[in-house]
Design a protein around this nucleic acid. Structure first.
Length: 276
DNA sequence: CCAATTGTTATTTA
DNA sequence: ATAAATAACAATTG
């Protein structure tokens, strides 16, 4: 479920615990979200440590603790972070909980495609620092996009936009939103885009990321079903899942079909298979 | 029972 | 050998 802006939204929730100590760590040992994670070390280092600060990159979050603890969380498909009262009893799929004096920081993930990582040391670990430069950073340039599209020239552009090594944080709905705004058909081979289309694509990537962060991450309420409250009807997002949905620009019917292995929504009246 | 799901990754195919 | 397509992961919901 969570893409760039939603990840930032969830990180902000847990930021309620900045400056407070972790009294205890509760986790469901052996669950898939802990694959490759040294949970014994995690528990040892985080118990009694203070949560100092946190940040997001792509679809991941990094929480920094006193004593050199670095906690990485990826929400996968169905994960979410919540803040619950100190007396809260764990619910189903609450696989990982940091207990503080005045609250509990809860990671809930039914499908467990999410992930918990932990490292100890003076600096953030490699699995964090190697994440690709953010779409909103100055390192994300039209030339870099053009180069990447050239190396993925036969894959549909929709599939290429989902590749985290170059478009960190962009997921299924954001990719569709970007292509719709750029008026590019999702099945177009990445290598078939004109230089002008590539510049437009680059611009729309940044625009959608920026607006999504403003609209979603800045808010304090609840998420998935309520996400519609934050996103205006001028976005494809508000129409993409409805049967019989109409393109907000052309007012013509939208199409849903699998592209690059994911359900994809587009406006055939606006997004043509041949370059214009 | 069947099909769906806003993500990644291992395996298979071309 | 490389890139692209597909299957698999797990749990729930419609």
């Amino acid at each position: 479920m969570p893409e760039l802006a939603e990840v930032e939204f969830f990180r902000k929730r847990w930021s309620a615990g900045h400056g407070a100590k972790v009294l205890s760590v509760q986790l469901h040992e052996g669950k898939k979200i802990f694959r490759g994670c040294d949970t014994a070390l995690l528990i040892k280092k985080l118990t009694g440590a203070k949560l100092l600060d946190s940040e997001t990159a792509a679809k991941q979050m990094l929480f920094h603790f006193s004593g050199g603890g670095w906690l990485g969380i990826h929400l996968g498909m169905s994960g979410e972070l919540r803040v619950e009262p100190a007396a809260y009893p764990s619910a189903k799929h609450d696989h990982f909980v940091l207990v503080q004096k005045h609250r509990q920081l809860v990671f809930n993930d039914p499908r467990m495609f999410g992930r918990v990582q932990f490292a100890s040391g003076p600096k953030p670990p490699a699995w964090w620092t190697k994440i690709a430069p953010a779409v909103l950073s100055s390192k994300f340039t039209p030339a870099m996009v053009a180069d990447f599209l050239g190396r993925r020239s036969r894959a549909p552009i929709k599939a290429v936009l989902l590749m985290q090594e170059r478009f960190p944080g962009i997921g299924n709905w954001m990719a569709d939103e970007i292509l719709w705004r750029a008026a590019i058909h999702p099945k177009r081979p990445a290598g078939s885009l004109t230089p002008s289309e590539i510049r437009t694509l680059h611009r729309k990537c940044r625009h959608v990321c920026k607006l999504a962060l403003e609209m979603i991450a800045g808010k304090g309420g609840k998420l998935p079903p309520e996400l519609n409250r934050y996103i205006p009807k001028t976005w494809l997002f508000r129409h993409r899942w409805k049967n019989g949905g109409l393109c907000p620009i052309t007012k013509k019917p939208l199409i849903r079909e699998e592209v690059g292995g994911r359900t994809t929504c587009w406006s055939p009246a606006r997004q043509k298979l041949r370059a214009r």
